[in-house]
Nucleic acid binder design. Structure first.
Lengths: 217, 217
DNA sequence: GTCATTTTCATACAACGTACGAAACTGGTA
DNA sequence: TACCAGTTTCGTACGTTGTATGAAAATGAC
């Protein structure tokens, strides 16, 4: 099989999915493709480009159902969930991309297109659409990153630290009492919680009943 | 000067602040300390431990003014700003820590202590304090990470992509019309925006007027 | 001064990304 | 068929990295 740019990316993705980005080596990648390491360099300029290519390739796979006429809250929730699904399909790669590929979201990606459309549909003035969309991407990616590398779970099962002076009854000396067992599904919950909070916050901003803080941006 | 664990961390931090984490080398670090590379290994088990140590060291520097009796909204805003200040003091290190040191926030760190205290003071039921706090940390770190690596600025100055079918008047063919010039201070603005949105969302959740979505967690 | 312990250093190795030039393969023309 | 220009593959090699190993030097107790 004749060694293609796309083939290299696909093989790289396979290896990354198995062992993570930092275990990816040009030599291993070549072995995976039954080729000499140096052969890769005729199709790809260097390792960094491989990672960029793989990231782009995966990003291009993103698809979302665009409920054109659903309320924007529902649409944005759906979009976020779809993005999360993609992140879960290639967790190692995405965790890497989030922090090392600052431009892995392109202006013409379906994700960005859909997001800005929804934000605009929500009633955000045209000049602020990008800011609000950027804000949402940063938040969603932040939560996903924390989820993918385990931080989110760890923090959410962290005890609010020992009361240095007794506060009220019910000491509860046991550090992990109830839910240290379950692992997966509470992440879904956390993600929904973030989205709901974010959406509610946006709603307030849009309908104008600010909590007493600065007026719009 | 006799080569200490703390001294190694301090030197590493100096190098990281200058050239970033990925430019840090055990050899450079040794040179910075006028020592042989292998001498470091008597005070530190390996490079990863150096990074962990530096991260811990910086994390321990965190200080916040705890306005004990201000409204929780103000307190949490302040806490987040203090955290952001710390992140800006060592941007390279923090950007690294966010993604590579999943446990860089410890249960007894002043940051976590303050955060959970504030969340509890906001009226979040005891059993949900950790989740809400975790959520906030993930969001704040996500935004800070995006800010530190330039994503946030890039996204927020991204044009909502070209309308494929004309939507309404005012074509505005010019891609960047007004604000591509300014660079720094709009980050402050974005950060405040996120915090306000988040806080407003939490307020709604706490006062019970959910927007028609699921009841509390 | 002697000796045990701790700290420093010189050397060396495996693994990495990749520069360089030679070999092998390819398709088109005669 | 033979030839040849261009593309693709590969062998070898260099510089850099983290660090294992053991020798050398420094240090402190007696």
């Amino acid at each position: 099989m004749p060694l293609t740019e796309a083939g290299i990316y696909a093989a790289a993705l396979r290896l990354i999915d198995e062992d993570g980005v930092e275990a990816l080596t040009m030599r291993k990648l070549a072995t995976e493709l039954d080729a000499n390491p140096m052969s890769l360099y005729h199709h790809v300029p260097n390792k960094e480009a491989v990672l960029r290519g793989v990231t782009r390739m995966v990003g291009a796979q993103f698809r979302t159902v665009t409920l054109e006429d659903a309320p924007w809250q529902e649409r944005i929730r759906l979009l976020a969930m779809d993005f999360r699904t993609l992140a879960h399909r290639h967790p190692e790669l995405m965790a890497y991309s989030f922090s090392h590929q600052p431009d892995f979201i392109q202006p013409d990606d379906p994700f960005w297109t859909a997001l800005t459309a929804i934000v605009a549909a929500a009633g955000v003035p045209r000049s602020e659409v990008s800011e609000i969309a950027a804000l949402m991407v940063a938040v969603v990616i932040g939560v996903l990153a924390a989820e993918l590398n385990g931080s989110l779970h760890q923090w959410s099962t962290l005890k609010p630290p020992g009361p240095d002076d007794a506060e009220d009854g019910d000491g509860d000396a046991n550090p992990d009492s109830a839910d240290t067992a379950s692992e997966g599904p509470d992440q879904d919950h956390m993600f929904r919680l973030v989205m709901d909070t974010l959406i509610t916050g946006l709603e307030s901003r849009l309908t104008g009943d600010r909590g007493g803080r600065d007026a719009g941006l």
